[in-house]
C-alpha cells in the first residue's frame, strides 16, 4: 500500500508536467487542427531559458535560493517561450496555413528539428545541471509516503496555471474569442473576431505553459539537454488525444493518467516498458471511445 501511494504521488507530480505540455497541444489543435510537433522542443527551450536566467541572476552565489527567485525565473522563461511561440507561428506556420494539413504537419516537424539541432549547436549536446532555485527538502506525508518540496511545487504551480487558464478562457473576452475560433474559424472571422491575433495569443499561452513545464522539470529532474523534449512531447500529445483533443480538462486528465500509469509500470513491472504503456492505454481508450475520454463526437457529414 505504501509502495502504491508512493508511486501515485510520483505519478501525479510527473503527470502534472505532461498535463501542462498537453494543454498547449490541445489548444493549438483546437484552433488550427495542427499537431504542433515543435511543442515538446519549446518545453526544452523553456528549461534552458530558466537555466540561463538562474545562472545570470547568480542563484546560489550572488542571491540566495528562494521562492521569489524561483518565481522570477519561472516568469522570465514563460515570457521568452511565449515570444518564441509567436515567432514560430508567424514565420513558419502562418505561410502554410492555407495549405493542406499534412504540409503544416511537416513544417511543424521541420521547426522541431530546427529547435533540437539549434539547441545542440548553441547549448551543447551534453546535459546541464539545473541550478537549485529552491533548496530541496523531503517531506513525509501520511502513510509513509515521501515527497520532495519540488514535487509539491510542481503540482501547486500546475494547478494554479490550469485554474488561471480555465478562468481566462471562460471569463475574458479574449477567451471567448478563442472558443469561438476553435468552434468555427470562418464564422468567427465573419463576426469580426481578429482570427490571426487570437491564433497568436493561443501560441503565446501554449508556449508559456510549456516553458513552465520545462522549469518544473528542471526542478525535479535537474539534468537538462537539447533532446529532452522529444519523448515528453510525444507523450503529452498522446495525453491530449487520450483526454479528447481540443478539450482542456481532457488534457489535464490525460496527462495525469499518463504520469500515474508510467510510475505504476516502473514500480510494478519494469522500467523498460515505461515508454510503451502510454501507447497501450491510448490504443485501448481509442478503440473503445474513438474521440478520447472527453472528446466530442463529431458526426460524419456527407
Amino acid at each position: 500500500m505504501q509502495e502504491f501511494l508512493q508511486q501515485l504521488a510520483n505519478g501525479v507530480a510527473w503527470g502534472s508536467i505532461y498535463a501542462l505540455i498537453a494543454l498547449g497541444y490541445t489548444m493549438v489543435y483546437g484552433i488550427l487542427r495542427l499537431i504542433n510537433f515543435a511543442h515538446g522542443d519549446i518545453y526544452m527551450v523553456g528549461a534552458f531559458a530558466a537555466y540561463f536566467l538562474a545562472r545570470a541572476m547568480g542563484v546560489g552565489t550572488v542571491v540566495e535560493a528562494s521562492p521569489l527567485v524561483a518565481a522570477a525565473v519561472l516568469l522570465g522563461s514563460m515570457v521568452i517561450c511565449a515570444a518564441l511561440g509567436v515567432l514560430i507561428e508567424l514565420f513558419a506556420y502562418r505561410p502554410v496555413r492555407r495549405s493542406s494539413r499534412i504540409t503544416a504537419l511537416i513544417t511543424a516537424i521541420g521547426v522541431s528539428l530546427f529547435l533540437e539541432n539549434a539547441g545542440i549547436r548553441i547549448f551543447g549536446a551534453d546535459p546541464k545541471f539545473f541550478p537549485q532555485v529552491i533548496a530541496p527538502r523531503t517531506i513525509a506525508l501520511a502513510g509513509g509516503v515521501m515527497v520532495t518540496n519540488h514535487q509539491i511545487m510542481v503540482v501547486v504551480v500546475s494547478v494554479l496555471l490550469m485554474v488561471a487558464l480555465t478562468l481566462f478562457i471562460q471569463k475574458t473576452r479574449t477567451g471567448k474569442a478563442m472558443r469561438a475560433v476553435a468552434f468555427n474559424r470562418d464564422a468567427a472571422s465573419l463576426m469580426g473576431i481578429p482570427v490571426d491575433r487570437i491564433i497568436t495569443i493561443t501560441f503565446a499561452i501554449g508556449s508559456a505553459l510549456a516553458a513552465a513545464a520545462g522549469f518544473l522539470v528542471g526542478l525535479t529532474n535537474p539534468k537538462i539537454e537539447p533532446l529532452m523534449g522529444i519523448m515528453p512531447g510525444v507523450k503529452a500529445f498522446v495525453a491530449a488525444v487520450l483526454g479528447g483533443i481540443g478539450s482542456i480538462p481532457g488534457a489535464v486528465i490525460g496527462g495525469l493518467v499518463m504520469g500515474i500509469s508510467e510510475y505504476m509500470v516502473v514500480g510494478y513491472i519494469s522500467s523498460t516498458y515505461r515508454d510503451a504503456i502510454a501507447f497501450v492505454i491510448l490504443i485501448i481508450v481509442l478503440l473503445i471511445k474513438p474521440t478520447g475520454l472527453l472528446g466530442r463526437n463529431v458526426t460524419e457529414k456527407v
Binding site: G110, L113, F114, N117
Partner: peptide, 13 residues
C-alpha cells in the same frame, strides 16, 4: 542539421 531543417520548412512553404 540546422540547414537541413530550415530547408525543409522553406520547401514546405
Amino acid at each position: 542539421l540546422i540547414i537541413y531543417s530550415l530547408l525543409l520548412i522553406l520547401l514546405m512553404i
